[in-house]
Write a protein that binds this DNA or RNA. Structure first.
Lengths: 199, 199
DNA sequence: CTCTAACTAGAACATCGCCTCTAGATCAAG
DNA sequence: CTTGATCTAGAGGCGATGTTCTAGTTAGAG
């Protein structure tokens, strides 16, 4: 075997996360290497490009949020309550982990499906599969009459995750604390938004 | 006097708007000059920097939306209905003018307050004054008991403009049509969000 | 007509940041 | 100990892009 690694992938991603928390998507490889203690050469030994590094960071941050969301689903019996709880939990999680949340804002899923590095393409494509399946389950329970709407999951996603994310995003990007009163706004707004699917 | 101008400022801004609609914030001066027919030298004769050009475009797009919003206020007697109508109108306007809407997403107001070019600083700082005054008027009517809350206007702004913008932003950035069903989602969500201010 | 302010023109310059390249260090296996 | 795969190291190539520079053009004023 060869020499053991001095830095783990996660260590480099952690460094990138802190740089991104300050500089956003314009974070440079030089900044990441400075923050991690590795040199640019070492960074490029692990990641084929700056893009791959940042996309990996983005993927990791979103997957971590998703784990939380799955736990939230398990804690609720009522599908309507669960949907609202998913949105509120997204806000809470982002408030508690601002740097992780900032990493989530690096890209948009739809764009990356077309532009992500080859190696990550499949991971990007299937990133939301689990959450969409969960939303499909909850939606089928909550809106039995709309079960045949092919866009049902997409609409539910917009009313729950999209609505919440849109409200908290400005705070995340500005590195400003997400106000606690926003949780209540999100809960009521999501519940009301979902009523558009009823009729 | 000297030679008359071959391009007006608005012509150059229009060209920049079309480039931004495709390339977003990474639009280059070369792309703008190509789209307008002017050379980079001419562009720099009008605008001191790329930043000033793009900030001017951003300001123009937001001021144009604001004009619409003032008209909407005048069309409504009930303050609650007016607040909801403001949000829905923002979505409609963005749907009808996707390139203008894309220009609105170039910057965030809070960041520009600190980083905008000297010449534009005042214009940036007072950009929202009119809208905030309008929201203050409507909020004072709609929430008479909360009139002493120093953050009232900020909260109303979040519940109306912030909520709407958060929902439509993904479509604007992706250059995807804003679904019509979103108008209904926005109307109900805004109305519900505003109820958090009542108690 | 001549003068001149204002503008056009686009080549040239400077900077910045991604990425590569070659050399050297390290440590497990044999 | 020797070997060799793997990693560290950081200087430098290279392309892209913001900005400047100098020359030339235009059209109104006197």
């Amino acid at each position: 075997m060869g020499r053991p690694a001095k830095f783990t992938d996660d260590q480099l991603l952690d460094a990138a996360r802190e740089v991104v928390a300050v500089h956003g998507v314009t974070a440079t490889v030089a900044q990441v290497s400075a923050a991690s203690g590795a040199t640019t050469g070492s960074v490029y030994h692990r990641f084929r490009s700056r893009e791959e590094l940042l996309v990996r960071l983005w993927l990791r941050s979103i997957e971590r949020l998703h784990e939380r969301l799955f736990e939230v689903e398990a804690e609720h019996d009522d599908p309507g309550e669960a949907l609202v709880a998913l949105a509120v939990e997204t806000a809470r999680y982002s408030r508690e982990h601002p740097a992780e949340a900032r990493a989530m804002t690096l890209y948009r899923h739809e764009r990356l499906v077309h532009t992500a590095p080859q190696v990550l393409h499949d991971r990007v494509v299937h990133l939301n599969d689990g959450v969409f399946a969960m939303l499909g389950r909850l939606a089928a329970q909550r809106f039995p009459t709309a079960a045949d709407d092919p866009h049902l999951v997409r609409r539910v996603f917009t009313c729950v995750i999209g609505l919440c994310y849109g409200l908290i995003r400005p705070y995340i990007v500005a590195a400003t604390p997400i106000p606690v009163w926003l949780d209540d706004v999100i809960a009521r707004a999501v519940a009301a938004a979902l009523t558009t699917i009823d009729q």
